[in-house]
Write a protein that binds this DNA or RNA. Structure first.
Lengths: 208, 208
DNA sequence: ACCTGAACACCGTTCAAGT
DNA sequence: ACCTGAACACCGTTCAAGT
């Protein structure tokens, strides 16, 4: 407890992510993180600007875990793999994922991933508006799929939940039954492939 | 101030939505809503189960505003119009939209809209897994597009924002420049149409 | 029986006192 | 100069006192 600070910003980041993973997003408070590090709340302000900064740190930690896949031979598969890598890391941190859904992220690790995806799309024949649409479609599919999977995470919601099996929504009930017959990853891969078909002229619907 | 309650659940709902629209999501507190209605915080618990219930009320209010479009002749356009209707209403309430991104919604008005979309997709040749994927793609595109648009809503973020024009992310910068040349609605329509091409065998890429 | 104020256990952050 | 505890202005909700 001499001159050097008692802990680093990286330690704050790690403690925050562990807290969120283990006890949910509501547990992410200045006071809890400080307690985890064995100090008072005010000591945190030496490493973090404010609460929003703490949240940004968590988002950055999550995307830092993305394993960039080794490039597949064809562009469509490279793009798909990149999307799956992002999806996987968000799935591994469902509570933290909610942070990325709500606020726009400046986290360098997230921007780097976005840049990678944009570069990959740029190697296709897509340009201009169609390139932009392709990018937005893929980002949306990642974010949207995570959101769709997030339901069971919300605790206590189940008691209040109106079962979709109810005959009020027969079409939704049929979909929900059909979704019980796939794994989440398979469903996401199918979703991304469908998106690619709509977006890449050269992607053929055959491999779906 | 006699026997009948001083206000209805619908009034609570309305007061909550107005509060969120005007002062942002952080202003949505039991105490603020109560003050808006001229009572103490505890009186709210006569109409609302807890804070989560209050948020659900806001989400329901938003989706209740959806104007179901008059059905277009062809299925693809009917589906597109339905998606745009949902997108528009979320755009009109950007702060409240954040609630729908994070938590799974049981709001009847939202389920009814989902059911409508599922039914519409059911009138195509799609069945089983492909029907499910189509539904997920469209939902994801709505949710994801809203999320992408939400950035400027977050107040005070701009000061901290790392400009994407920075040369660290040239591909992202190019995309962002390209997105400045379209309207949000046009971009969303293009996005949905691309999604439909990937998802509906009979949708032709010609009309993009 | 119902409505609701006081009180409790939190929260982020300011401010000033400690070193 | 820097670190950090006390204090402030909030929050959702319990509990008990009022009618």
């Amino acid at each position: 407890m001499g001159r050097p600070p008692k802990f680093s910003r990286a330690q704050v980041q790690n403690a925050a992510l562990v807290l969120v993973d283990q006890h949910g997003l509501d547990a992410l408070t200045m006071r809890n993180v400080a307690a985890e590090l064995g100090t008072g709340p005010m000591t945190l302000y030496g490493h973090v600007q404010d609460r929003a900064d703490l949240e940004a740190l968590v988002v950055d930690a999550v995307f830092s875990e993305v394993e960039i896949p080794t490039p597949a031979p064809d562009p469509a598969t490279r793009i798909e793999d990149l999307c799956v890598a992002a999806w996987k890391v968000l799935r591994r941190h469902p509570h933290a994922a909610r942070l990325t859904l709500t606020r726009r992220t400046d986290a360098p690790s997230a921007l780097r991933l976005g840049e990678l995806l944009a570069v990959e799309l740029g190697t296709t024949t897509l340009t201009g508006r169609r390139l932009l649409v392709a990018f937005r479609v893929l980002l949306s599919l990642i974010v949207g799929s995570i959101e769709s999977d997030l339901a069971p995470v919300d605790p206590g919601d189940d008691e209040r939940r109106v079962s979709v099996t109810e005959s009020d929504y027969p079409a939704l009930a049929a979909l929900s039954a059909s979704s019980a017959r796939t794994t989440p990853e398979q469903l996401f891969r199918d979703t991304v492939r469908a998106g690619l078909v709509g977006v890449l002229p050269q992607a053929s619907p055959d491999n779906i």
